[in-house]
Design a protein around this nucleic acid. Structure first.
Lengths: 222, 222
DNA sequence: CAAACTTTTCGTACGCTGTACTAAAAAGAT
DNA sequence: ATCTTTTTAGTACAGCGTACGAAAAGTTTG
């Protein structure tokens, strides 16, 4: 029986641009963006490096692509809804997507050509603000302000040494040690009286700033 | 005359950790962070690659080092001054430093161990807020909010395709072209009615958000 | 069925990267 | 003059992105 198609021996899924980008996202999530190389990506897909180049022009295109994959996970705001609620939801949606894929924040700086999902998302955001009655100029202001805050918060979160698994104290203890010279009393104060308190989660800081900003925008409309 | 020390043939400055980091900053400014390699750095200093390793353990230490060089350029706020003025000045100081060295924003995400200048700067910021009467918790809130906004704004600015040299219209024209499908009407509206207006500078958006945030913080204290 | 053509996969090779290891050179001390 | 410490380099290696071209697989046609 020579011609029986063997179904068992690891039927490899056919390659495709989508599968390449999807695996790239997974690999970056698991091992960090630095570990995402053409070679490692090919291996994780059970292929050889050069095979990927049929679906992707070069590595930059992969990086652009996975950033857009992240934006694809984010539900766009609706111009029909209450603008404040929509902006609140959007902010949290973007933040949580960037938390799931921390490498994406770093890529935003280097990649200058936004993908389609990115554009669609921002178009919806602008539409929602305009529909709420913001002037063109105020919409630009609000847009820059909100995005700056969201991205900046995500950037800081990505730079945090702990990723939720460890408690803050496990990590900060050695740092506090290093600070025992007394040069940084206020940092220690914040750390011991706030950050190291049980139940503290840096992510909770997000709401404070977000509400302050939304309050301010709301006032600027009236 | 065999032993005359030749003074003319390019008396090379002696190496040192400071000079290495300084040249690394210059090189990154001129050619981008990707072009900053051990080899290119050595060449720019008139040395050989391996010579640098006497002053620096590895490339990561260079990256950490140049981030801290940037923070060294930033004047810290003073707890003695009016908190709002100090925070306003600091925000602009940080932003302009990050604008001079756009690569620094991207490094913030990947480098997790802050340098001394960074720590000193943030200690001064916390001290100023506490001296102004903010509670420990409010100080943490304000700190996260301000830094998020500043870093996020810098991140967006770094991602902009133009670096001040070209006008906005030169760059956006082809993009607008691509949008002629009509899928992104609000983006076009913002572009044509706001961004493309003569004299527009994205940097000017910074003040709007900054004042809104400072207003909000001011209110939260009262 | 064979031949021709298209789509998809991959082997090899090149110039780049960071840096380990080692040795040479220079400077300073005795 | 000799020894020690500081500083600078040469060589080499593994890993990177990817250009180029060939091989393989799949599809269409005679």
């Amino acid at each position: 029986m020579p011609d029986t198609a063997q179904p068992l021996p690891e039927r490899r899924l056919p390659l495709s641009r989508e599968r390449v980008l999807g695996c790239a996202v997974d690999l970056a999530d698991e091992s960090g963006i630095a570990a995402l190389t053409i070679r490692s990506l090919a291996q994780s897909m059970g292929t050889k490096p050069m095979s990927l180049y049929y679906y992707v022009a070069n590595k930059d295109e992969i990086l652009d692509g996975i950033v857009d994959m992240v934006f694809n996970e984010i539900k766009s705001p609706s111009p029909a809804g209450d603008w404040r609620e929509e902006m609140y939801r959007r902010a949290h949606a973007v933040r949580s997507a960037l938390k799931r894929h921390p490498w994406a924040v770093g890529l935003l700086e280097s990649r200058s050509s936004p993908g389609e999902a990115n554009l669609r998302h921002h178009e919806a955001t602008l539409a929602t603000l305009r529909a709420a009655g913001f002037s063109v100029q105020m919409t630009a202001h609000a847009y820059a302000l909100l995005d700056s805050y969201i991205y900046g918060f995500a950037l800081q979160e990505a730079a945090l040494p702990f990723d939720g698994r460890d408690t803050a104290s496990e990590i900060t203890a050695p740092i506090v040690e290093r600070f025992s010279t007394g040069q940084y009393p206020h940092m220690i104060e914040i750390a011991t009286e706030h950050v190291l308190k049980p139940g503290y989660d840096f992510g909770d800081e997000f709401d404070f700033g977000l509400n302050l900003i939304l309050d301010g925008l709301s006032r600027s409309m009236r």
